[in-house]
């Protein structure tokens, strides 16, 4: 049976309240994990493990949060992503909304791509494929 977007959102919300110690009402679709919800690096791994359990899915390393793109010098120029880097990131994260980020692709703004909606989109895609 297909899981509705609301159901996915509410499970994701529960994952995030447990992983980050925040209240339900702090977790809205637009909340950014780092900026709004205070996630630190290890929390991203915690979130992945909890999502795997909550939805019975397997999330390969770097698929939901492809942070390794930043380690490639071809994709980063100073504090900005190169056009090739941006393109690579968009391919790697079809589940993210790039409309703001691509106007000013500062590396420091990359965490803003990781919103609650990004996770909900990712999980929805994953459940459709499965």
């Amino acid at each position: 049976m297909a899981t509705s977007r609301d159901e996915v959102f509410s499970k994701v919300q529960e994952v995030l309240t447990d992983a980050l110690g925040v209240d339900d009402d702090e977790v809205s679709a637009e909340s950014t994990l780092q900026g709004d919800l205070g996630a630190e690096s290890i929390d991203f791994l915690d979130i992945v493990f909890r999502l795997e359990k909550a939805f019975d899915i397997k999330i390969p390393k770097g698929e939901l949060f492809p942070d390794e793109i930043l380690n490639n010098p071809e994709y980063v120029d100073g504090d900005k992503m190169t056009p090739a880097g941006l393109e690579k990131l968009k391919q790697a994260m079809p589940h993210a909304d790039f409309s703001k980020f691509e106007q000013q692709p500062d590396v420091s703004k990359m965490p803003d791509l990781f919103t609650v909606d990004t996770i909900v989109n990712y999980v929805e895609n994953k459940l459709q494929v499965a």
């Binding site: 791994l45 915690d46 493990f49 795997e52 359990k53 390393k61």
Partner: peptide
Amino acid sequence: ETIDEQAAV
């Protein structure tokens, strides 16, 4: 609960 090459819970 979980163990892989990166981490364990």
